[in-house]
Design a protein around this nucleic acid. Sequence first.
DNA 1: GTCAATTCTTGATCCAGATCAAATTTTAAA
DNA 2: TTTAAAATTTGATCTGGATCAAGAATTGAC
Lengths: 244, 244
Amino acid sequence: MNELSVELLDQLSQIDLFAGLLTTEIQEILAYARPLTLQPDAYFFQQAAPAKALYILLEGQLKVTQLTPDGQQVVMRMVNSLEIFGCVAALSGGEYPASAQATKTCQAYALRQKDIQMLLPQYPKMAMNAFQIMVQRTHELQDRYRELATECVERRLAHAVLRLVDQSGREESDKIVLDMPLSRQDLAEMIGSTLYSVSRILSQWEGRGLVLAGREKLSVVKPDILSQIAEAQIFSADLKNAPI
Amino acid sequence: MNELSVELLDQLSQIDLFAGLLTTEIQEILAYARPLTLQPDAYFFQQAAPAKALYILLEGQLKVTQLTPDGQQVVMRMVNSLEIFGCVAALSGGEYPASAQATKTCQAYALRQKDIQMLLPQYPKMAMNAFQIMVQRTHELQDRYRELATECVERRLAHAVLRLVDQSGREESDKIVLDMPLSRQDLAEMIGSTLYSVSRILSQWEGRGLVLAGREKLSVVKPDILSQIAEAQIFSADLKNAPI
DNA sequence: GTCAATTCTTGATCCAGATCAAATTTTAAA
DNA sequence: TTTAAAATTTGATCTGGATCAAGAATTGAC
C-alpha cells in the first residue's frame, strides 16, 4: 500500500520478528498492517478483550499488565521500541491475557489476526522468528518467576531497575537516566511488592549514592553496585556492621 | 525407520505438537526421533547444559526445575504423558534454562535440534503447533507469576493441587487420587513456599475433610471447596469465627 | 503567584509465613 | 523384626515486608 521510507525500513529490519527477511518481504507483510498512534495512558487493548491483533511498537513505550480479581495490578512486561506485543493474538486467538497501556506517546503497527494466520505460512522465516520470540519470552518469565519465588524485595528491585537500564537507559556523563515516568507504585507492581517498600529501598540507595530518585524519575549512578546487590554479592544489611 | 504400532500412532496424534498432521507425516518426523526410557529421579537434561534435543513424553511424569545460585529449587512445571518439554532446545539452541527430572518411569522420544530445524520448515503445521504451545506456556506462566505476586500461600497451594488434579488426577469413587510421589517439599517448591507451611495447610485441610494426605501421597476429596479457596470465595480464617 | 491533586517519605505497628527445634510417623532395608 | 533413613507434624519464635497513618515534597492548573 503505502511506500515506506528507507530509514523506516532500516528500523523495521531490526525487529526480531522480521530478522532475516528481505526488505521487499517486510513491505509485503506491512501492507497488511494498520499504523496507529496512542497518547500516554491510552490502552492498545484491555485484558479479557478478544485478541484481534498483534502489534509492532515503532516508537514509544508501554507496559503490559494483569489485573487481579481484587484490583491489584501486576506489571508483566515493559515494551520498548521495535518490540512486538499482543503475540497471543497472533495465533491462539482467544482473549488478551493482559492489558497494554502506553507510558509514552506510542507509534505502532497493528497486524490483524486473520492476516497473520494467512501470512505466517507464507513467510516461514517469520514463523520461526515468532517461535523464537515466544521461547525467549518464556525464558525471561521463568527467570522472573524464580526471582519472585526465592529473592528478597531489595534484590528483586535491583534486578528490575537493571533490566530497565538495559532496555531503555540513556547514558549521560555521570549516570544512566531512565527516560520514562516511573512511580514507586509502578516499580512495586513490577516486582510484586508495595510502593512503601520500594520507596524505603530507593531512599537507602540514594543515601549510598547508587541512584538518584525523583518524583516519577530514576537515574542509576552505580550500576555495578546494583548488580552486586542483584546477584547477592553484597547485602545492604552487611553495611550496618561494616568496618569504616 | 521402525514401524510404529497403530495404538502408538493413535496416541501420538493426540500430541499438541502433531495436531492436524497426517499419521504418515508423524511417522516421517518420528523417523528422526530416538526413543529412551528413564527411571524415576533420573535426569533428561540438566540446567545450563547445551540444549541439544526436544523431548516428547509418551508415558510417565517428570518435573522441570530451576536451581537458584544458593541451592533453592523452584518447580517450573510438571510434565505429563503426551506433552513436550525442552522446547527451548527446539530452535534457540543455547542452554537449557532448567533441569528435567523423572518422577516416575518415563518413556520418551528425543528429537535433536538439528533435525527439528530441518523438519520445522518442512512441516509448517508443526511449526504453527509449536508456536501455539509456546504461547500457551507463556500464558500459563503469566498466570502463575501473578498468583505468586498477589496471593497467599493457602490459595497458591489450592491452585497448585487443582492443577495437578487436572493434569494427572485419577478418579476413584469418593476421591481423586494424585498418582505420583508428591512430598510436602515438592509442593512447596511448586508454589514458592516451605514444606512447613504446606504441611500445616494440608493438615488443616485434612481436618476439614477436603483432602487425604499421606507420606508423598495426596488425594482430593472435595475439589469444589478447594476451588473456592483458590478463588477466594472462602477463607480458612473465616471458619474460626463461623457460626456452628 | 496560590491551591489542589499527586506522589513520595518515614515512622509505627502488625502479621503471614519463614525458620528453628523436636518429636513422630512411615517406609524400606538388613 | 529391628533399625535406620527419610518424610512429616507441630509448637515456639522470629522477621521481612505489608499495612496504616500522617506529613512533606512536587507538579500542574488557574
